[in-house]
Every structure is written in C-alpha cells, then in structure tokens.
C-alpha cells in the first residue's frame, strides 16, 4: 500500500512537472502544476506531515495557482512562443546542464565526502513513528523559530504593498480616470 501510493503520487508529480514544461498552452501548464502540487501534498501525508499537506493544498494549489490563472486570463492566453535563439544552443545546453545536475545530485547522495562524513545524514531507511504532528510543528514554530516566524509577517506585508504598487496603473495625468479596458490590480494575497 505504501509503495503503491508513493509510486502513484510520484507518477502524477513527474507527469505534472513534465506537463508544465512541455505544454504549449499556458493554461494547460497551470493545470499540470495543480496536479504536481497535489501529488506533493500526497507525499507529505505519506511522510506524516499532515499539517504541511493541508497548507500545501490551501496555499499552493489554491491561492498561488489561482493567482497564476488570474494573471494568464488578465493578459490573454498566448500560444505563440518565439523559437529563435538569442543565445546560440541555449535549449540543448539547458537540457544537457539540467540532466547533468540531476545525475550529479543523485550520484553524490549516499556518498562520503573526503572528510569521511556521509553526504546524506540520517537513516535513509526509516521514519520515526508518531512524528510531525501539528502540535510538534506548532511548538517548534512558536519557540525555536519564533523570530523568523514574526518576520514573515513583515515579509507578507511588504509583498502585498509591493504587489499593489507594481500592478497599479501609474499615469500621473490620468489618475483615477475611469478606464474600463484597463486591467486592474488584483488583490495579491
């Protein structure tokens, strides 16, 4: 059962990720992204990170992708993608570099460094039982990580203000002139 859930979620995740990259239509990319994000949430559940799975679905699959779709619809779907290469061999080089990076990461994991320390700490084989429940994560957030947790409030306020300022129409003359065709700034958060 565990293996079945893992491989099913992994297949959806990899298929969704490939779909994001390969789809010609931007809306299809966004929908593939939803599938990939939900598969990640399933993998979180399987690792006893239930709270993170809920947050993943609400924040990512909910808010972030909806925001993406808003912007896609606002700007108009654009199937056309320029195929001319401004940097010669950019695409083949990108693919080769990406594959090389994955091979390097996988080859280096499970190795030992020159100092004799293993490159992956912790047992690769097992979970601790009853681990990662909401209470434990909450206690960690409000004790060890209290200061960064408070700083996230500042970050989010800055992001909201920045989003509104950037997306606002800033023509000094026109001001608040009614402009029905103008795309309005959608609420960022």
């Amino acid at each position: 059962m565990e293996a079945f859930v893992f491989f099913a979620a992994a297949a959806i995740l990899l298929g969704g990720a490939l779909g994001v990259v390969l789809a010609r239509n931007t809306v299809h990319s966004a929908l593939f992204l939803v599938g990939a994000l939900i598969a990640v949430a399933v993998l979180f559940v399987q690792q006893q990170a239930h709270l993170l799975a809920a947050v993943q679905v609400i924040v990512y699959a909910g808010a972030v992708v909806v925001l993406f779709l808003f912007v896609i619809m606002l700007l108009g779907v654009d199937d056309y993608e320029s195929l001319e290469e401004t940097i010669p061999f950019q695409r083949p080089a990108g693919i080769v570099l990406g594959v090389a990076a994955v091979v390097a990461v996988i080859a280096l994991a499970g190795n030992t460094w020159a100092t004799g320390r293993p490159s992956v700490r912790g047992s690769l084989t097992g979970p601790a039982s009853g681990f990662g429940n909401v209470e434990a994560v909450g206690r960690e957030l409000f004790t060890t990580f209290l200061w960064p947790f408070e700083l996230t409030a500042v970050l989010l306020v800055l992001a909201v203000v920045g989003g509104v300022v950037l997306a606002r129409r800033s023509h000094p003359g026109s001001g608040d002139a009614p402009d029905a065709s103008a795309p309005r700034s959608e609420g960022a958060e």
Partner: peptide
Amino acid sequence: ALVFGIGAVGLLVR
C-alpha cells in the same frame, strides 16, 4: 532531485 531537474530545464528552455 528529478522534479528539481525538470523545473530547472524548463526554466532554461522555455
């Protein structure tokens, strides 16, 4: 690692 690689390639290629 595989998903990260797919994302990185997409970022470079698209």
